[in-house]
Design a protein around this nucleic acid. Sequence first.
DNA 1: TGAATAGTGTCTTTAAGACATTATTTA
DNA 2: TAAATAATGTCTTAAAGACACTATTCA
Lengths: 225, 225
Amino acid sequence: MTLAAEPLFSVEVVVLRLYQQQLYVYLTPQASSSSTESIYSLINGPIDYECDKNIENTVKRLIEAELNAEASYIEQVKTIGNATRHPDGWMVASVYYALLPQLATRSMTNWFPVKQLDKLSLAYDHLALIHSSLRRLKDKAQYTSMPLHLMPAEFTLSELQRCFENIMQSYIQKKAFRRRLLEAGLLIALDRERRGKSRPAQLYRIKRGHIIHHFSRKMFGKAEE
Amino acid sequence: MTLAAEPLFSVEVVVLRLYQQQLYVYLTPQASSSSTESIYSLINGPIDYECDKNIENTVKRLIEAELNAEASYIEQVKTIGNATRHPDGWMVASVYYALLPQLATRSMTNWFPVKQLDKLSLAYDHLALIHSSLRRLKDKAQYTSMPLHLMPAEFTLSELQRCFENIMQSYIQKKAFRRRLLEAGLLIALDRERRGKSRPAQLYRIKRGHIIHHFSRKMFGKAEE
DNA sequence: TGAATAGTGTCTTTAAGACATTATTTA
DNA sequence: TAAATAATGTCTTAAAGACACTATTCA
């Protein structure tokens, strides 16, 4: 992606998804300037004043164009503007994160595990923007049911717990986790089970219109899973 | 204030303060177009790329220029952008709210009680921006000690409770409130009391560097004080 | 003394933490 | 039967809710 004609304002999108129980972020390699190592960039771009009705439309358009997918949740993290984050001078960027529901079949090219971002070279302040987004998601996981947006259509409570643990970077008590989510009334038990190498697990789906729940207390879990 | 030369991006600031136990917002009357009624506007303006190092600097500069005061807390609420909020077409605005500490002597011109905003005519979407800010502050009052930023240097627990109640628009149990704030360890009891028409009240000040506390549970209070 | 407000005692309630125990499957 | 994971029972703990009660001042 080259620099847009209007350098003042850009939208930056941190797109997240689960893959094999890990959180991945979508990054595109920049046209590498002869060096051996690519520089990776967030999905981003300027507002299209012709077709975008608002900034969230811009976000959706960028995701659609790059990933041909639709996010199940989009949230504005912050808007950052200063003279130092970009070599071209004063730049303003609105940062969003987007959660994609887990779909079985989908290419993993350009997806990178968030636990290994240190090994990549990221453009400008994009690493910081990712960390801001992950921090926001982590905070929300402590007192809302937001991580549900990352789950596939059917899932077990253990899978959901691992999703939360992944985001929160901590170990959660199984009993407390199940009590909390089941009593919130967000889930519907299906009449099917996930069979694996041990006891089969009850499958659930999300009750329509009940994805987001705000709990009255935080859930902590113990440090570093 | 007239329209800036660069209409794309503006910073809008909802400045709040306490006065006689009520929340007030600062609004400036616009050059009225011959009608009898003024249209009021938030403090706002474009970024000054020469002197502002970042957007928060812009906010501080705008507050300083208009009020000759310094906020004790500034928070970005959101960035809104669409083609409909402003008659000139696509506009982007970053909205901040700022809390001013309560100072005894200060003019109240251009300050309006937030409970009576319905009676005023506000420019563009400014009423909505104020409501977004108040909603954010209300949420934060439920699980942080943010409202402390509105208090004067010395205050009683009853005064502090009324500040919270004002923001949360609800009645709070006295015992629960005191337990919560005192056990958070944010306050230092002074060796002086506030004398009034009844039993004198212990005066407190904020412990240095301990203004912001995140509680593990929300505090609710009952509807409409 | 009574009104007003400050401040406390204490029991209840809610929901998370801890952790052991049972249940059901496959190899 | 052993290993693995699912699911539950139940006691403890932390902190808010409810609300009555005492304390101290002024008029």
